[in-house]
């Protein structure tokens, strides 16, 4: 008896392989990011599993596309979209971004931490931060740039 299999079905093992490759290389880094977003290790682990499970063939293609830049940054961008509801919840509950302090962000001053963590970990927009910090958007971008200069000085 012959049966028809769709292209999507036959490609699932390769999707699994691609996911495993992403997981092996970046799961620790991504989990670190999610922990910073949700502030709870157990919840973060659940989100990590959900994110890897929900990755579709086109998402993987997009992540591995060399024209789109760093694989990790693409994966993080995907995770950020998946965590949008968490971002909204944090924004509603806390009102402002909690300051995350580690060896890298700890080198930033309070304002730089608020901008960097607000944008990167708490999904805030530049306009929102500009309103909260009573500054214009150009100033927020400059503070963000300063934060990146600190990260780079730590990297080099």
């Amino acid at each position: 008896m012959k049966e028809q299999l769709t292209y999507t079905e036959t490609s699932l093992p390769s999707i699994k392989q691609a996911k495993q490759s992403l997981y092996t290389s970046y799961s620790g880094m991504l989990l670190g990011y999610i922990v910073e977003v949700v502030k709870d290790r157990t919840v973060a682990e659940k989100y990590l599993i959900d994110i890897f499970t929900s990755l579709q063939a086109n998402d993987i293609q997009d992540i591995f596309n060399p024209d789109n830049g760093s694989v990790y940054c693409r994966l993080q961008s995907y995770a950020r979209k998946q965590l949008q509801t968490v971002h909204n919840c944090i924004a509603e509950c806390a009102g402002q971004a909690a300051i995350s302090s580690n060896r890298v962000t700890g080198l930033m001053n309070e304002e730089q931490q608020l901008v960097f963590c607000g944008l990167h970990y708490h999904g805030k927009s530049i306009a929102q931060l500009a309103y909260e910090l009573k500054k214009d958007e150009t100033a927020i971008r400059q503070i963000l740039k300063q934060s990146f200069n600190i990260i780079r000085s730590n990297r080099k």
Binding site: L31, I49, R155
Partner: peptide, 22 residues
């Protein structure tokens, strides 16, 4: 360069996932 900065930060803050996650 900026993406390398982001990867550097992420590596710095990496958390080992539990063995059963995969």
């Amino acid at each position: 360069e900026l993406e390398a900065d982001m990867e550097h930060l992420a590596r710095h803050m990496a958390v080992e996932p539990p063995a059963r996650a995969w």
